[in-house]
Design a protein around this nucleic acid. Structure first.
Lengths: 126, 126
DNA sequence: TCGAACGATCACACGGATGTCAGGGTCGAC
DNA sequence: GTCGACCCTGACATCCGTGTGATCGTTCGA
């Protein structure tokens, strides 16, 4: 598919798709006229990228973890230097921290909402 | 405590502490000479803010959910309009989405790491 | 009393993700 | 062959979190 369709199917502007490519997050083939052509799989890939960006990861990091995300579990470890694995581990741990922080705070918001809804009348916590 | 101590205890630059205040995320009292003075609780509060920022939430949103996070469960619902509650709900759901996205991808990274390590050392594979 | 360390404000700068616009090709339908 | 929809590149603009520096006032110990 071309950029317009990918854009629509991922709710992502063409500008951003080109930007992601520039950042090495996605790849495209080019037809002789220079048009980008995308594989079907790119739809999921782009959505994944957007989710991670939204979760606070910079493109630099996303680029590093993307190879881990291929659906048929293909291991690219010929180029997996120990230092690269260490980076991945570190990044995984940071994701875990983010997750825990988000869960804590989301639960607090949830609890707050529950409390507000059950006690409708002015009253302070006991 | 003054800004220097809060800065050190939260590993946050003074500049940022002033910025957070400007954005309405934290408050300070002022001594007659104009110096900011912070409550002990601000340490946790600042760390919370930094965690949420790191998780991708903008200050605008953080400001809205912070009142939900007070430790003694104090409900500030005199000013809790239904529309504000709706906003909170929406934001809570977005946090849940972020959490799920992060978990999915972190687990994929973890699995990748496991696989690489197992294949690297087949003799220790259990 | 002087200087170091700290505080305040203000302003400019930067990097990253994103929007937008300009100028120009390609292609299919009429 | 022209028009509209689509694509290309490149440049500038914006927002936001953050850094940095200038300039100045305050506090405190030697």
């Amino acid at each position: 598919m071309r950029i317009g369709e990918l854009s629509e199917r991922t709710s992502t502007s063409r500008r951003l798709l080109r930007y992601y490519e520039e950042q090495g997050l996605i790849v495209s083939r080019r037809s002789p006229n220079g048009y980008r052509h995308y594989d079907e799989r790119l739809v999921d890939r782009v959505l994944q990228i957007r989710g991670l960006l939204d979760a606070g990861l910079p493109t630099r990091i996303i680029k590093q973890i993307l190879p881990c995300l291929d659906k048929p579990r293909v291991i690219h470890f010929p180029d997996a230097t120990p230092e690269m694995l260490a980076t991945l581990e570190l990044e995984r741990d940071r994701m875990t921290e983010r997750i825990e922080c988000l869960i804590r705070n989301r639960d607090a918001v949830s609890e707050y909402l529950d409390t507000v809804r059950t006690n409708r009348r002015p009253e302070v916590a006991a």
